[in-house]
Design a protein around this nucleic acid. Structure first.
Length: 290
DNA sequence: TAACAGGCCACCG
DNA sequence: CGGTGGCCTGTT
């Protein structure tokens, strides 16, 4: 049972503190880029690959990380949470291009674009099609629970994301209980025909190659593919367009068009930091509507 | 209630 | 090609 864990309590593998500016756990987790995290009393528990990451803010710029399950290095944590991104430079570049975004940038300060495992990202964003965040979370959590890869920390059980082989073994009634609706055939097609390795092989290929591969997958269109490229591969030149971005682009830039056109507009306008510009617009637009 | 939500595909013209 | 209708399910 390779890759399967049970009751790994007191299995602390690594613990360290880091100092970073412009980093908010609350905003980074809640800005809609990732779905399977658990906040308990200000601490965040984040299942990641074969590990459970526990993190909390000590003060404004000091953050504590604890790694359970399989070890993850500090360098890897920096990579996952986008802590190497030069936020000041990115923000000033975006303001230079679009001064209208000044308020949105200020409001979004602290968001870091994270990078999640691409296979998990693909499943997550297929589950997310025409769905609200609580529903997406519940589908993904149920799927993870069926996978039975448990890490126990602080007297609580956290389920790691299942491997493809685990999902292949799941009874169809369990899959049905996820209530994926029309997304179910997308999900089943993905599990049946694509492996984690297929997605790993894309890592070092250029944007265009990723885009071509991803959009050839049933259920993965313009928006979902941009999400996978941005949140799964960490390519900051991606620019996912959803209804919020659509509203934002019209309000802020007076631009309208199809999802494809707007994606091209965003990427052409913001270049290598499109992902941050997108996230700022998204976060800001959603806050305005609440 | 009917519309719509982090859309996509099939099918038109 | 570019635009439109249908679709599972849950929420407001």
């Amino acid at each position: 049972m390779e890759g399967r864990f049970s009751n790994l309590q007191n299995n602390l593998k690594n613990s360290f503190q880091v100092e970073v500016e412009d980093f908010s756990l609350e905003k980074t987790f809640n800005c809609g880029q990732t779905f399977r995290f658990f906040e308990i009393g200000g601490r965040y528990y984040y299942p990641y690959e074969n590990s459970l990451i526990k993190t909390e803010e000590i003060n404004g710029k000091t953050f504590k990380f604890e790694i359970y399950g399989e070890n993850l290095t500090k360098e890897y944590i920096f990579d996952i949470f986008g802590l190497n991104h030069d936020i000041q430079r990115i923000n000033s570049e975006i303001i230079k291009i679009a001064p209208q975004l000044k308020d949105a940038i200020k409001f979004s300060n602290g968001i870091r674009l994270i990078r999640m495992p691409p296979y998990e990202a693909t499943i997550s964003f297929i589950f997310s099609i025409q769905s609200q965040i609580p529903v997406i979370m519940s589908r993904l959590n149920k799927l993870a629970e069926f996978g039975k890869r448990v890490v126990e920390v602080d007297n609580a059980e956290f389920y790691l994301f299942p491997k493809r082989e685990d999902i292949l073994e799941m009874p169809i009634v369990d899959i049905k209980s996820l209530k994926l609706g029309f997304r179910e055939k997308f999900f089943l097609n993905l599990i049946k025909n694509y492996t984690e390795e297929d997605f790993e092989k894309l890592r070092n290929l250029p944007y265009e190659e990723k885009k071509k591969f991803l959009t050839s997958i049933l259920g993965v269109g313009e928006k979902v593919s941009e999400c996978i490229i941005l949140f799964g591969y960490g390519d900051l030149s991606a620019f996912p367009v959803d209804t919020w971005i659509e509203k934002g682009l019209e309000k802020i830039f007076g631009v309208k068009g199809t999802t494809k056109k707007l994606t091209e507009f965003g990427r052409a306008t913001f270049g290598e930091f499109s992902g941050y510009a997108q996230q700022y617009i998204y976060y800001y637009m959603r806050s305005l509507m609440r």
